[in-house]
Amino acid sequence: MNHLPQAWGRPRDDVYGPYDGSYLQNDGPNQHSQSPIVTGTSVLALKFKDGVVIAADNLASYGSLARFTDVKRLRKFAETSVVGFGGDVSDMQYLDRLLNSLDIEEAYGSTGHTLNAQNLHTYLAKVLYKRRSNFNPLWNQLLVAGLDGEGKPFLASADLLGTTFSSPSLATGFGAHLAQPLLRKVAPDEETASKLSLEQAVEAVKASMKVLFYRDARSIDKYSIAVVTKEGIDLKQDEKLENQSWAFAEQIRGYGTQVN
């Protein structure tokens, strides 16, 4: 998939030919979103021994404009799961409201029952698939982090088409290209992930966030990071990327001001 949210859900050029953008007329009956407007970039997550680490930066872009620089894209659910949102921010806020009402509904009445991360992911995937089937997509790619029914670490993705998958490490958007290879090096399979310590996992995710900030033009150095374990959620929303080294920048050739 193309990392640019604008291209999500569109037919691939190499398969279907260049896209016909003639839909852009200002009248007609269509009210459904045809493209995301204010967007968040990558979300990263990695499983470890006792849970999952998940992170996303705090930027909401309006095209190439860094429009909102303090948008929290990780959301807690029922103190047991975290959802990370990539893609359209208004759709993220809609989903946030939806999850709020789901949370209230679940907490109401019967005591002791909660939806775990796996249940939550199944539900969200159903919502997204239903919306795409009505040609009215929620333009997001989500990562759901938490624990499954057996109390084991759970991490899965769901996107605007309703596609779902699960893996020891996941990254959305640009992160799928840049961060996922780094995370896969740390946790190539479930077994390796189940032996990772919290520190190792956090370090890998933070390193990946830094790489993304270096190379993703739609990213920012302020980010949120959450650790989900059976003890609960440790969510920090005002982290700053540390120990950046831009020494590599002057090595870059081929564009910019220098000519050679």
């Binding site: 009445g109 019967s110 029952h113 939806l115 796996q118 249940n119 939550l120 539900y123 159903k126 029914g149």
Partner: peptide, 15 residues
Amino acid sequence: RLIYGRAIPLSRLVD
């Protein structure tokens, strides 16, 4: 089971 992938809590079903 379809929507949440969860066995329905008994109290909810009986309610």
